[in-house]
Structures are given as C-alpha cells and as structure tokens.
C-alpha cells in the first residue's frame, strides 16, 4: 500500500462564481521510504498540493473542492480536528522554504523541538533527546545551541533546526517545500546532502517541492512536473530528466543555464507563467508551446501513460518535431 496516495485532488481559492481552481485533478502516489520530486514554477500549484496533505491551507480562502488524500490509507480530507493533529507532525512533517520565518522568534530552539516531542512522543520530551536530534542534523555544540533563539543562527543552521523539529516525532513522510530556495548555494548543497543521508538512516519518504530541476535529480526517485494546476509529466527521475517528453518539461530544462555551455543565448519559453484564474483553455501550455497546433487550444489533453511508468499530458509527445 502506498504511504501517500492523492486522487483527483481539486483545490479552489474562493467560492462559487469567484472560485479559482489552483489545483486541478492532481494524482500522486508515494511508497514508504521513497522520494518524489514535485517540480513547477510559481503558481503551478505545487506548494498548494503539498500543504493540502496535512490540510494546512487556510480555509477560507482555500476550499478542498474534490478528491482524496490517502495517508496510510486514511483520507485526510475527512479527518476530525483531533485526528488531524495526530497526523500533523506524527505521520507527516514539514520543512518550509524560509527557515528564519518558520521558527517562532520568541522561543528558544530547544523548546520548539521539545514541543514537537511533547505533542507526539511525550515520553521522549527530554533535553537528551533534543540534543540527540540536533546532533543528527549536524548542529555543532548542541548543548549550548538548544538555548539559542532562532535569530542567533545562520540560515543553514535554522533549516537544520527545522529538519530536527520535523524529524522529532519520527514521521513516515517528510514534506520539504522548497527547503533550499532561500539558502546560499554552498549551504543548499549541505541541506540536500543532509536530507539524502537522513532518508537513508531513518527510512522515511520525502516529498520534495522545488522549482529547481537540478535538486530533484540529486535526491528524487520519481518526478512529477506541474504547470498551471495540473501534472503535465510524471515518471522515474533518472529517465525523465534524461528524456523529458512533454514540451514544457523540455523547454524548462533547456532554459536552465548550465556551466558547461559557452556564453550563448539561453533557450527561453516565450510569454509569462499564467496567473491563477487566467489559465488558458485546452492544453494550458499551448500559448507558450513551441510546437502547439491549432487543436491544442480546444480540448484539454488527458494525462496518459505513454510508456511503462511514464505519464505525459500531451497527445503529440511522440511527434517528430518534439523529438528533435
């Protein structure tokens, strides 16, 4: 049984006629101990999907309009408040983008980690366990560091504290929402390395939300690419990153600057990332797609399994113009 299974998830912002669909029919599945990378640009719905897993979206304005989120077999969207609190932190933990803003500025970091223990493993809510967790995430001198306030730590150290706090209740799933975006390049590398090492050591599954395709390749087993509220391509990371099939994935990968190439024009995707509420009809990528045909603006294409374990939302994925 998969640890996490999202079926046909639909999330709106606002009600009735004013409702804007931010997530439209997302389906994902994650086995225990595996890592799934969820990739997309701003407004793609990747973070909204991630927050929905523990029902962390503020309602209103968000509305869970349809679908199921099965976490260890139970539908999160149907849980009562008390059950939800058990799941949050206990079964699924979060690491967020801005570690500085995600730690409460007025409490010592040791206390904040201990709180996570008190909520889910009260028997282990001791200084010794806090120190063990801080050591686990590579914080030097944890005995004195646990008495620090968040602002006294660097961004990298703050993110390590966030990870320690997330791991304290021994969750089965860690959702990392852009965990390195706010950090410096050399610190990014440290955090990704730490996550990879912890996954091996502790055996939890990771859902990694990122806009950075390079990071996905470092750590993920599978990748799902989102665009304008939908998954447009999904498959094993190694295969997908070497041989992207959807025109968006292809264009996105080409527009990432690399060190290898000499100074030359970058390949771009024309136009702007569509705003919520202004998603195009038919295939949502068609106005920016280099190989779009007239029919692309008409019928919305389905997400189809075109090869074993390779899902693509483009009926023309196999056409010669795309293979070039």
């Amino acid at each position: 049984m998969p640890l996490l299974e999202i079926r046909n998830l639909q999330i709106d912002f606002g009600h009735g006629l004013k409702a804007l669909r931010a997530v439209d029919g997302v389906a994902l599945s994650l086995e225990p101990g595996k890592t799934l990378g969820l990739v997309g640009e701003s407004g793609s719905g990747k973070s909204v999907t991630a927050l929905a897993i523990a029902r962390l979206l503020a309602c209103p304005p968000a509305v869970y309009a349809g679908g199921e989120i099965l976490l260890a077999g139970r539908d999160v969207l149907r849980l009562r408040a008390a059950e939800l609190r058990q799941i949050r932190g206990g079964l699924v933990s979060y690491v967020f983008q801005e570690p500085g803003a995600s730690l409460n500025p007025v409490f010592r970091i040791g206390g904040q980690i201990k709180e996570a223990l008190q909520l889910h493993r009260p028997e282990a809510a001791t200084d010794a366990e806090v120190i063990r967790l801080l050591k686990l995430v590579g914080i030097p001198a944890p005995e004195t560091r646990m008495k620090s306030y968040p602002h006294e730590l660097s961004g990298g150290m703050q993110q390590r504290v966030m990870i320690a706090m997330a791991l304290a209740p021994q969750p089965k799933l860690l959702v990392a929402d852009e965990p390195t975006t706010a950090l410096d390049v050399t610190i990014q590398a440290q955090i990704i390395e730490l996550l990879a090492q912890l996954r091996q050591q502790l055996g939890m599954a990771i859902l990694l939300i990122t806009h950075n395709l390079g990071i996905v390749g470092d750590i993920a087993d599978d990748v799902a690419v989102m665009y304008a509220g939908q998954i447009v391509e999904q498959g094993p990371a190694h295969d997908l990153l070497q041989r992207p099939l959807h025109p968006y994935t292809q264009a996105l990968m080409k527009s990432v600057p690399t060190l290898a190439a000499d100074a030359e024009r970058l390949t771009t995707i024309s136009g702007q990332v569509p705003r919520l509420g202004a998603f195009p009809t038919g295939c949502r990528f068609h106005p920016r797609c280099p190989v779009a045909r007239p029919e692309c603006s008409q019928a919305p294409p389905p997400l189809a399994e075109v090869e074993p374990r390779r899902w693509v939302r483009c009926p023309y994925w196999n056409s010669p113009s795309l293979k070039a």
């Binding site: 660097s154 990298g156 410096d184 590398a189 390079g214 390749g217 470092d218 990153l241 990968m253 290898a260």
Partner: peptide, 20 residues
C-alpha cells in the same frame, strides 16, 4: 554546488562545511 539537471553529467559534489 551548482545543481545539474542531466543525470549523466552528475559528478561528486564538494560540500563545504560550516557557514560563512
């Protein structure tokens, strides 16, 4: 530390210890 997308081009990463 620059992330590389293509898995074929992956190389051993040199991770610096500590902060600036």
């Amino acid at each position: 530390a620059v992330p590389v997308v293509d898995p074929k081009l992956k190389r051993r990463r040199m991770v610096l210890a500590g902060d600036v």
